[in-house]
Design a protein around this nucleic acid. Sequence first.
DNA 1: AGCGGATGTACAG
DNA 2: TGTACCTCCGCTT
Length: 270
Amino acid sequence: MPEGHTIHRLAADHRDRFAGRPVRVSSPQGKFSDSAALLDGHALDAVDAHGKHLFLGFGDTGWVHIHLGLFGKLGFGTAPAPPPTDTVRLRLVNEDHHADLRGPTTCALITEPEKRAIHDRLGPDPLRTDEDGERAWQRISRSRITVAALLMDQKVVAGVGNVYRAEVLFRHGIDPYRPGRDLTREEWDAIWADLAMLMREGVRNNRIDTVRPEHLPEAMGRAPRVDDHGGEVYVYRRTHQPCHICHTEIRTAPLAARNLFWCPVCQPAD
DNA sequence: AGCGGATGTACAG
DNA sequence: TGTACCTCCGCTT
């Protein structure tokens, strides 16, 4: 569920439903009760997203910092909200809407300086228009680490996860094991621009689609279908299935505790 | 009923 | 490098 596009979409969804009005804040599960009591009845006056971090601003009371981690989910519904289940960490309610947060890695009330410190340790986010890939290039072009690992490092690029990593490397024909410093400037600029485009599409559609229409297999038709992963992809979790372009079996291997997926023919090692 | 895995990260050693 | 953490879902028995 959560790569950067999900978080930016959730930021917009919170803005649409809750911004500018008082909101009831509670923690049915209990783990956020003290902070929820401080926030209850205040207006949500700002929403921000950087990479996979979501920030809900409540004026002088501070910011709610949310990170979904691997399992976290935010679900919206209309008001009145149904009785919460005992896994709801945070619930927001106004006259029209409710939002339930479950299973996050982080849900904490923080100060403005603490928020700034989080931004400072994150790399540039392709979805934040005030930044570009230059900072990322400075790190990547000097690193012996594989480009696959660098793309997952939130200090290098914020918001890319296992799906966008696999897909963008496929789209540019780059071997995931190539060291960052062996990328050309042209290759990196193309990857950065592509991430910005793909992730903007991801925010718009609330799913990850990366397959160009001309590469969709006949059986799928022209319109991307919704599959298990929520979108149409070239390599992510397509182990042993044929590559959409060359029909070679897609490969998988663990890398830094995550599964890497790639086509050995379309993404050749040098 | 019980397991393993998942679009993530932080910390220990 | 390994492991702990948070939840849900689909597969196996």
